[in-house]
Nucleic acid binder design. Sequence first.
DNA 1: GACAGATTGATTGTGCACAATTTAATTGTG
DNA 2: CACAATTAAATTGTGCACAATCAATCTGTC
Lengths: 147, 147
Amino acid sequence: MESDWLLLDRQLCFAVHAASRAFDGAYRRVLGGLGLTYPQYLVMLVLWEREPVTVKELGTALRLDSGTLSPLLKRLEAAGFVRRERSRADERSVLVRLTPEGRRLKERAADVPKTIVGSSGLDPRELAELRSTLRRLTATLDAAVGA
Amino acid sequence: MESDWLLLDRQLCFAVHAASRAFDGAYRRVLGGLGLTYPQYLVMLVLWEREPVTVKELGTALRLDSGTLSPLLKRLEAAGFVRRERSRADERSVLVRLTPEGRRLKERAADVPKTIVGSSGLDPRELAELRSTLRRLTATLDAAVGA
DNA sequence: GACAGATTGATTGTGCACAATTTAATTGTG
DNA sequence: CACAATTAAATTGTGCACAATCAATCTGTC
């Protein structure tokens, strides 16, 4: 029946949109004390794992373009957490590095994951399943759009 | 082990964020021809179901505040899809109604759900399960934040 | 009827997201 | 070597999201 699709779509797009913003809100609350926004935290997570990275690599890892990353990185730099410099090997690229302050922030953010997972109300199995479904959804949607 | 949480959080917050934006992107592409953005489409879905609604009711249904809805509704009004007027019964409230043009748009948007569900790559059972998990996640996160 | 407190929307300021364009640097090809 | 095509960032413009604040209206209580 056609109306099933309509109803499911209506409910699903509400659900995805609302869940994303609820997630943002939960991180916003936890990260506020660190002086980070949620997207800034995502960038820091990448940098805490490997460094330096180019803006391009950050964009690939986070599925974000330079229009989003450029001003965001400037704010992180203004906050003293990262440094940006042109790559000497390829002058087109900009390398992003942590400052000592940015490295120290990792310790202060250590219990963020536990807090968030805890307030999600889902058990590890559900979280893993959700993650897997969302990944598949993202990949398929991106492929359909031709990204 | 602590690092499991860290890893899961890292992967999950990437996944939720990316999935939300991939979803937005898929709708953006489909809705572009109708002159609607994704959040504007969410508002129209509510109006196509019942009308008139107050800004407050829209906010409750979509989990959005007036800071988001006020300018969005002005754009929908400028596009000729809705009309806004102060409620005579309660002068604090603003009633939002469809214009004939807004009602006609419903027909033109009829195959949007099918298109999106189709390009999601998930079967109806998975979609229903995802929707249910996301709802629970949203409710729990909101409760934890005190919304 | 008057006034304190609550409710509804609008506004302001900051930040994220993306499309489209621009600039600079690199690479490939003749 | 020269030059077209490609690539990496930045910029511009539009729109969404939310916190904080404000103005107008309404409600309950005295």
